[in-house]
Design a protein around this nucleic acid. Structure first.
Lengths: 190, 190
DNA sequence: CGAGCACTTGATCTATGTCAACGGTAGTGG
DNA sequence: CCACTACCGTTGACATAGATCAAGTGCTCG
């Protein structure tokens, strides 16, 4: 197994907070840059073979730059996102913070894997639950992005979203500056 | 976001090395126990909804026990495995070691996600590549386990394995004490 | 007002699921 | 050593969820 060395001294990341809106790109694979903690929103990570993973509020993105200097994945926002530079605290690379990030990453992987198995409707619903705020408001990414994540086709996603709409699970809800076909209220099934 | 505290003081894990053979279970979700580093082999992790993830040589398994005291997933061996207790070193929870584990976990997630998308044959081949040693020798897990990981059915796996065998990609190879239908040599396609 | 997307919808096709029967192998108990 | 059982794997016939192909429609923005 390779031994890694830090590409930079383990100092606090002094970059500024960052805000992304749905669709914006944070970085591309191979770019130089720093690591972030995702405070709010959902990011999509892509590798050379397409969709690679999701990052959700609390996750650390791009931590590999501290080891290799460059990002392994491209990252773009599926919803509006808020990011803060990482490492953040004083004993920033403290074992405990990293340990919970590691546990969280493994938990996350299981959730995403679940989005790629089972019936098409359930996969889409699973993703919607990840994207929905606690108030039930959801702004869906483009159909094609949902398709990439769930390993379905965008026509299938379109049919499923419409079907959920007709079933009353998704209620269309106009939000300023958002495609009319994308903002909904998710009514959790009883 | 929740704040975690360590369930145990961050001391070196003094448990002994452990060896598993194909099929053995390391622990069940909810059990108390310690964390391990997987030195050799491939483990399957299962959550409440079934297959959750794979762990591959170098990965840390069960690190959440340091936070919660119990395992989140059940773990069982897909191939013969060798485990060593973790944390291992002196400044064991050192940032750098954890950081590379975190980067590795994210990389791993992407690999496993790739096993659940695209054509059935490619998914199975992807898994075989993960399982094959550098010498090309592979001992496949039962068809049902392959099916769980790739989100296919065991009949489909059976057909695909046979098809790869007929195509000369997998060459049957008797190994003592292993089901005759499971040990092969993987001949990488040019 | 027109161009370019993203989405919708229908018709058809196909990869994979499902169901069912059967064969081999390992283990167990007589 | 020989039933007998319990898995696991194989194979065929058939069903279907979702893919694919092909028009449309309707936002959004210049």
């Amino acid at each position: 197994m390779a031994l890694f060395t830090l590409a930079r001294p383990p100092q606090t990341n002094t970059a500024k907070r960052r805000q992304l809106s749905c669709g914006d790109q944070l970085h591309q694979a191979g770019d130089e840059g720093l690591a972030w903690r995702l405070q709010r929103g959902v990011l999509r990570l892509d590798g050379p073979q397409g969709f690679a993973s999701l990052a959700i509020a609390g996750d650390i993105v791009g931590c590999e730059t501290l080891l290799f200097g460059v990002y392994t994945f491209s990252a773009s926002a599926l919803t509006d996102c808020q990011l803060s530079p990482w490492p953040e605290g004083d004993p920033a690379l403290s074992g405990e913070s990293l340990l919970s990030s590691l546990a969280r990453a493994q938990q996350r992987a299981a959730e995403i894997i679940a989005l790629r198995g089972g019936q098409a409707v359930d996969r889409v619903l699973g993703l919607i639950r990840l994207l929905a705020g606690t108030d039930g408001g959801v702004v869906l990414p483009p159909r094609q992005a949902i398709a990439d994540i769930t390993d379905l086709r965008f026509e299938t996603i379109s049919r499923i979203v419409k079907q959920l709409e007709r079933a009353g699970v998704l209620v269309p809800e106009r939000v300023a500056g958002v495609h009319a076909t994308r903002s909904f209220r998710y009514v959790a099934g009883q």
